[in-house]
Simulated scan of single mutants.
Amino acid sequence: MSTIPYRSALIIGAGPGISASLTRSFRLAGLSVVIAARDTGKLKSLAEQTGAIALEVDASDPSQVERLFAQTDAHIGPPEVVIYNASGRVRGPLTDLDPSEVERAVAVSALGAFYSVQQAARRMLAAGKGAILLTGATAGVKGFANSAPFAMGKFALRGLAQSAARELAPKGIHVAHVVVDGGVRSELRGDPAEAPDSTLDPDAIAQTYVDLLRQHRSAWSWEIEVRPWVERF
């Protein structure tokens, strides 16, 4: 029997890292899971391994987000857990950035999160329960040079999480912002030999999300940071 007090989950912006670890954790716990991304071809292997349902979405388009939630309703019912992992990133000096690329990056990181939280809240308010977890980054609390669009999007994401938590928590919906402070380990990005444990293990990050979902409502966290024990901050 699952120790997660929810039955279904929708992960938006799914990929091979944190989202894949979350999908495996949720499926092992018995949750029905929908994973969504712009390119569902990249999700084929994960869907086959876990039995999750892969759906297509461009999170920066409100009509596509609305369609995604309707499709999710049809496949697994209204999702009781919604996780937003999508983000947009454009690097470069402020003077050289293309405004249209900046607009796109911020739309994915921030507006897509708003569209998703809005759709999730409408369903969860009707049910009187649910959880919405938003994946943040160091850039959401500390803007770096040559990375203004990413900081803009992640700062907005954090503001959305804080506002939504204050509005929705008293109505039974747990909203939390997870600051992933450091690089996430992958097959292509391992720890340097001279710096073991200097990246975050995606399975360990997923465990933190699961722990958030298990929190009793008398002690809900609205924000939590995860970082390697050797990370400077």
Rank of each mutant, 00 (worst) to 15 (best):
S2G: 11
I4D: 13
R7T: 09
S8N: 12
L10P: 05
A14P: 06
P16E: 00
I18C: 02
R24F: 01
R27E: 09
L31N: 06
A36C: 07
T40V: 15
K42V: 04
K44Y: 08
L46Y: 00
L46Q: 00
A47W: 00
Q49K: 10
D58Y: 04
S60E: 04
P62D: 14
P62F: 11
S63T: 13
Q64D: 06
L68A: 10
L68C: 09
T72R: 12
P78E: 14
P79S: 09
V81I: 15
N85S: 05
S87Y: 10
V90C: 10
R91Y: 06
G92H: 00
P93T: 06
L97E: 07
E103Y: 04
R104A: 15
R104P: 11
A110M: 14
L111C: 03
G112L: 09
G112V: 11
F114V: 10
F114A: 12
F114R: 08
F114Q: 09
V117F: 02
Q118T: 10
R122S: 10
A127W: 10
G128V: 08
I132N: 02
T138A: 05
T138C: 09
G140D: 01
K142V: 02
F144W: 13
A145F: 11
S147V: 02
P149G: 07
P149L: 10
F150H: 12
F150I: 07
F155A: 03
R158N: 10
G159K: 07
L160D: 04
E167Y: 11
P170E: 01
K171S: 12
G172Q: 12
G172R: 10
V180L: 01
G182Q: 02
G182E: 01
G183I: 09
L188I: 06
A195S: 15
S198V: 00
L200G: 04
L200T: 03
P202R: 06
P202S: 09
D203K: 15
D203W: 15
A204H: 15
Y209K: 05
D211W: 07
L212G: 06
R214H: 05
H216P: 03
S218F: 05
I224F: 05
I224Q: 12
R227V: 06
R227A: 14
P228Y: 03
